[in-house]
Amino acid sequence: MKINVTINGQAHEADVEPRLLLVHLIRDVVGLTGTHVGCETSICGACTVHLNGRAVKSCTVLAVQANGAEVTTIEGLANNGQLHAVQEGFWECHGLQCGYCTPGMIMASCALLKDNPNPSEGEIRHGLEGNLCRCTGYQNIVESVKYAANKLQGA
């Protein structure tokens, strides 16, 4: 099936099988490997990207269901080499160790801050419930999101 998907502002046309997952379109067809494949069952959140501005788990979205949509991946966040505030937060607050969950964690955090620019700790934890990290114990991830919230609000 022919589909048109805009990924990080760039239009892509592809002829794909109905079974192709969005995450495999992003990684294998378009070649953006920053989005990770983890559990493939919608649990871990490593594959989180934005589909028309909303966070989704791209391992359980079909590429054909993204036809006509805009997708943002981790590669689409930095602007001319300048890290996005959430990326900077994860850097500054040591929000990662092995890094496997990080792209998904950052995409989920960006979506959270878009809906709620000044979240409480509880709201941050609720917003990231669907993203698993087996290294950090989450404390520094929450700090990273707080850092980004402050930065984005000019504090």
């Binding site: 919608s42 989180t48 909303r54 966070a55 788990k57 979506a111 959270l112 419930e129 669907g130």
Partner: peptide, 9 residues
């Protein structure tokens, strides 16, 4: 239900 990313779908 699920988590935010699932609630979006």
């Amino acid at each position: 239900t699920g988590s935010v990313a699932i609630q979006n779908r």
